Amino acid sequence: MRSPRTRGRSGRPLSLLLALLCALRAKVCGASGQFELEILSMQNVNGELQNGNCCGGARNPGDRKCTRDECDTYFKVCLKEYQSRVTAGGPCSFGSGSTPVIGGNTFNLKASRGNDRNRIVLPFSFAWPRSYTLLVEAWDSSNDTVQPDSIIEKASHSGMINPSRQWQTLKQNTGVAHFEYQIRVTCDDYYYGFGCNKFCRPRDDFFGHYACDQNGNKTCMEGWMGPECNRAICRQGCSPKHGSCKLPGDCRCQYGWQGLYCDKCIPHPGCVHGICNEPWQCLCETNWGGQLCDKDLNYCGTHQPCLNGGTCSNTGPDKYQCSCPEGYSGPNCEIA
Rank of each mutant, 00 (worst) to 15 (best):
S3C: 15
P4R: 15
P4L: 14
T6K: 15
R9G: 12
R9L: 15
R9P: 05
S10A: 01
S10P: 05
P13H: 14
L17Q: 04
L20R: 00
L21F: 10
A23V: 13
A23P: 00
R25G: 03
C29R: 02
C29Y: 03
G30E: 13
A31S: 13
A31D: 00
S32P: 02
S32L: 09
S32A: 02
E36V: 09
L37M: 08
L40M: 11
S41C: 02
M42R: 04
Q43H: 02
Q43P: 01
N46D: 03
C55F: 08
C55S: 03
G56C: 13
G56D: 11
G57V: 14
A58P: 05
N60H: 15
P61A: 15
D63H: 13
C66R: 12
C66Y: 11
T67S: 14
D69H: 11
E70G: 15
E70V: 13
E70A: 13
C71Y: 05
C71G: 15
D72Y: 07
F75S: 05
C78W: 00
C78S: 00
Q83P: 12
Q83L: 12
S84Y: 06
T87M: 13
G90E: 03
P91T: 08
C92W: 00
F94S: 05
F94V: 12
G95V: 00
G97R: 13
G97E: 07
S98A: 03
S98C: 04
T99S: 08
T99A: 02
T99M: 10
P100T: 04
P100L: 07
G103W: 09
G104A: 14
K110M: 12
A111P: 09
R113P: 10
D116V: 12
R117H: 11
N118Y: 08
P123R: 08
F124I: 06
S125C: 11
W128C: 11
R130T: 08
T133K: 00
L134W: 01
L134F: 01
L135H: 02
E137V: 04
A138T: 02
W139L: 10
S141T: 03
S141P: 09
N143T: 13
N143I: 10
N143D: 13
V146F: 07
P148L: 11
I151N: 05
E153K: 07
S156F: 14
M160R: 10
M160I: 10
N162K: 06
N162T: 14
P163A: 15
R165G: 14
Q172E: 11
V176L: 11
A177V: 12
F179Y: 07
E180A: 14
E180G: 09
V185A: 03
T186N: 04
D188H: 05
D188N: 08
Y190N: 04
Y191S: 09
Y191D: 01
Y191C: 02
Y192C: 05
G193R: 08
C196F: 00
C196R: 03
C200F: 05
P202R: 07
R203T: 12
G208R: 04
G208E: 05
H209D: 02
H209P: 09
H209R: 10
H209L: 05
C212Y: 04
D213V: 02
N217T: 13
T219N: 03
C220R: 02
E222G: 11
G223S: 01
G223A: 12
G223C: 09
M225V: 12
M225T: 12
M225R: 07
G226A: 14
G226R: 10
E228A: 11
A232D: 02
C238Y: 10
K241M: 08
H242L: 08
H242Q: 11
S244A: 13
S244C: 04
L247I: 03
P248L: 04
P248A: 12
G249D: 04
D250V: 05
C251S: 10
C253Y: 02
C253G: 05
W257G: 03
Q258L: 11
G259C: 02
L260P: 05
Y261F: 03
K264E: 13
P267A: 11
H268D: 06
H268P: 11
P269Q: 08
H273R: 08
G274S: 01
G274A: 01
C276F: 00
N277T: 06
E278G: 12
C282G: 00
L283I: 06
N287Y: 00
G289V: 12
G289S: 03
Q291H: 05
D294N: 04
D294A: 04
K295Q: 12
N298T: 02
Y299C: 11
G301W: 02
G301A: 00
H303D: 10
H303Y: 14
P305A: 03
P305L: 15
C306F: 01
L307F: 15
N308Y: 15
G309R: 10
G309V: 12
S313T: 06
S313N: 10
N314I: 11
T315P: 04
D318V: 15
D318G: 10
Q321E: 04
C322R: 00
C322F: 06
S323F: 15
C324R: 01
Y328H: 03
G330E: 07
N332H: 11
I335V: 11
